[in-house]
Design a protein around this nucleic acid. Structure first.
Lengths: 143, 143
DNA sequence: GCGTTCCTGCGAATGGATTATCAGAATGGG
DNA sequence: CCCATTCTGATAATCCATTCGCAGGAACGC
């Protein structure tokens, strides 16, 4: 009862598990599923459990360090927050989602009378560089 | 065992329930969730159950009359298939999803070296005409 | 109408994602 | 180094969407 959680503290204690999870996001530089985080973080923190991943991700989202992302057909992903407006690339071969820089003008798309746009989300589906290089060995998730 | 299902038959028998469900899609002219289909179709077919909606939707998708759509944050939707390439509008006020005509050139968005695009999905989020007109009475789903 | 076969509604069952529980392990201020 | 407090891992529990199982109801060729 002596301590209270503050923004940016990522919880109160600095643990091996939380360190590993945060590093995974910094290393991968792309939106990740909780499963991907689990697998990647286990390389640094053996025995890591999925529950801890969910707890850590929730904490990081609450603190504003992570942002929640949804890509059609890929469910819930998380990416480091604070980046400028961008879109995503969904590799249909390996299933990984990447961040794309830049943005087309969705304003160019005429809306029905009376409709007002506030934001937009664009996902490009295709195959990533790695999968195009070696079409067979569907890339396993790597950092 | 004397009959077999064929494309376009929408099952074997013509029932009140299936007629109602198909009409809902023709009337609403927008992607619908199974819940929306249930509520709307019940106006014509009292007592309609959700299982029947799922069964009918599955049949219609198999026959190519309906297409599966996913909009971030809205889960699974279904829309009449066969339309030309288009995108969607997600009303953050009433939760309804609409179809938009036309398409911007996503090709304008440069991809990382080696990436190949196959398709794209764009969702514009905002408020629909009806919700803009009467900001309070969040539109209930209507046909 | 008749009967076969398919369809429907209900409620239970399933599957996947996320959260809760709890005992034991780890952290870190003193 | 001590110990209160927080964290963690394993597992059970929960949630939600979708499907299954089944008994009764409806469709339609004859």
């Amino acid at each position: 009862m002596s301590h209270k959680s503050e923004i940016g503290t990522y919880g109160i204690r600095d643990t091996r598990q939380k360190r590993a999870i945060r590093q995974v996001f910094e290393r991968c530089e792309r939106p990740l599923t909780t499963e991907e985080v689990l697998v990647e973080a286990q390389r640094e923190s053996t025995g890591l459990g999925i529950a801890t991943v969910y707890r850590a991700v929730k904490t990081l989202v609450d603190e504003g360090w992570l942002a929640h992302v949804e890509v059609p057909g890929r469910g819930t992903l998380y990416e480091v927050a604070g980046k400028e407006h961008h879109h995503h690339f969904d590799c249909s071969a390996c299933g990984r989602v990447f961040e794309l820089e830049g943005c087309v003008q969705p304003a160019a798309l005429p809306l029905p009378r009376g409709f007002r746009a506030a934001s937009h989300e664009l996902t490009i589906v295709g195959t990533c560089a790695e999968c195009n290089r070696k079409p067979d060995a569907r890339a396993r998730v790597r950092g």
